[in-house]
Design a protein around this nucleic acid. Sequence first.
DNA 1: ACTTAGCACTCTCCCCCTTCGATTGCTAAC
DNA 2: GTTAGCAATCGAAGGGGGAGAGTGCTAAGT
Lengths: 338, 338
Amino acid sequence: MTLKGRRETVLKIIVQDYIIGAVPVASRAIVDKHGLEVSPATIRNDIACLEEEGYITHPHHSAGSVPTDRAYRYYVELIGENIELPSGEQYLIYHLLQETREEIEQWLKLAAAWLARVVCNVAVITSPGTTRSRFKHLDLVALQDFVALLVLVLYGAKVKQQVVAFDRRITQDELTQLANKLTSIYAGMASSEILANKVELSPEEKQVSHCLVKMIAAEDKLEYGKPYLDGLHLMLSQPEFANNPKALNILEMLEEGSWLGNISCRGLNKGEIKIIIGEENPEPPLQDLSLIISPYGIPDKASGIVGVLGPKRMDYAKAISSLNYLSLLLSNSVAEYI
Amino acid sequence: MTLKGRRETVLKIIVQDYIIGAVPVASRAIVDKHGLEVSPATIRNDIACLEEEGYITHPHHSAGSVPTDRAYRYYVELIGENIELPSGEQYLIYHLLQETREEIEQWLKLAAAWLARVVCNVAVITSPGTTRSRFKHLDLVALQDFVALLVLVLYGAKVKQQVVAFDRRITQDELTQLANKLTSIYAGMASSEILANKVELSPEEKQVSHCLVKMIAAEDKLEYGKPYLDGLHLMLSQPEFANNPKALNILEMLEEGSWLGNISCRGLNKGEIKIIIGEENPEPPLQDLSLIISPYGIPDKASGIVGVLGPKRMDYAKAISSLNYLSLLLSNSVAEYI
DNA sequence: ACTTAGCACTCTCCCCCTTCGATTGCTAAC
DNA sequence: GTTAGCAATCGAAGGGGGAGAGTGCTAAGT
């Protein structure tokens, strides 16, 4: 399945030129701009072969070459995953994150904003959810006589809140006591374990406990939560979306929020990268796009996904190197605080 | 400045037809579809007057009538603010909110989703921020030996979190004690008051207190926070955005998040509505759009904004009635839990 | 003073045609 | 395996031209 010699070079040039220019690549342009020592006719022979093997198409008979999904796939295998981000850019994002290191949400927003601008496409980052959320701490704050705010802290520094209405008047002292009791009983448990726990509880404790189970289970369910998105306008200003009604489908899907749930990250280790090109995507609106994702954080404890979404014609090298570095940074940050 | 008799009717018809159809309205269509007992020529005379007075333009010489900003303004004054939402739709959203009433964030997302779909445009809802955030409760959860998660609850059921690193090892018991102490000292205070408070504190307490002030002040600063947006794809599927590069500017502005800060809600009481049409908007990207906003919640304690953003050619009656009702619902919900 | 019919005029939209330029695919020669 | 040459193909851009929609104006009617 590997091409050799000039064939491979030609394919690489076509992909790269198309990524930059977004217009079909002519055989003459291939030799001229890259100093090949053969004539355009020779290149055309090569291209004919590449077309037969499914790497190239032409939008119409007398147009230049356009890479197929297969060509992009070949290209990304060729350039590999070990691309380093220029140290200047490493420096920039590193210090950006240093300055807001106290707040997870801030990191993620900032990281998404940076990533989107670097790759000129959509950046996707999910918060570092524990794959199975585990209870860490509980707090109850009186709001009114019968009503309290339940603040739940999960491992992975995730905070959830919910209002609880009790059947009787209940003081802040009682609430605090209740919260402390449940915190010590349930420390480190997942929702199923809390449910299975057979300690004797008062009606109010039962009620709170019930809430907890529901909240933790809900957190488990939306495996990755709603991701931080940034750079929509950057992606949609790419030429493929000019006058293109498909852009709306994509927008709709992204706004809906759960699309990332269908993309499996299984079997992917920290530092690895998954590249999904065009029709390899399960979701139809994504089949004109490429998605590159990489997990970060601590497997099974607090891990999230960071990714780039853009037209198939995206700068894969840049995206891969940015993701590599960002995923590393985020992993380190997460490790410090779990 | 008020028009009379048929003039007003004609203007109203033009606005309404243009809102529905998005195409210039012809004089013949005005008499035919609305059963007027005059000839198109008569209507044309009226239109000529309306044009002189600045209510109407024509995209070109032989095209039908298109309302100006001034016409929209006249129209919304005409229909007034007291439009009731059909009871069927009231029922729907009422019960939707009932079911998730325990979680503020859930309400707001749900409300935004509903609103966007009803008006087929962008829905904007800010969380009910207290105009000056006040301290309610503090909690500290040990993450590592030197590191704790600070969970801050503000009035208005707002929860903020931040990681704090201490200079010495500190146990969960100590943290709990510390949190309780500060909670009782600072109850109900605004950031400035906490800062001015002269109680003797240990170094750790000082550090946490310092964090608190910073967090509360930060909350005050972004007056409305980042709003919940929904329905972007609905708005952008309107005909005015087909093949229109302006859509990207709007997208960019909305993604940025702080645009709503420039729109003043001052002098607006609960239940009132502010309608900003086209060039009345301060932000250039908004000058092709109309924005309708209404405050909700409890003035000076916990209030937010709910609004609709769409092309000037939007269904004002629907938007106004939806906002009226939604703002009422949200106000009630907020009142219950503050 | 208001309304109307009639008509010329204007402008867009759509379709067809042509031209131009770019680029390929093929063939035959090297 | 490579090249030159050449016909064939296709899209983009531009130029009519006709159809249709709608107005503005004028002069007559109420």
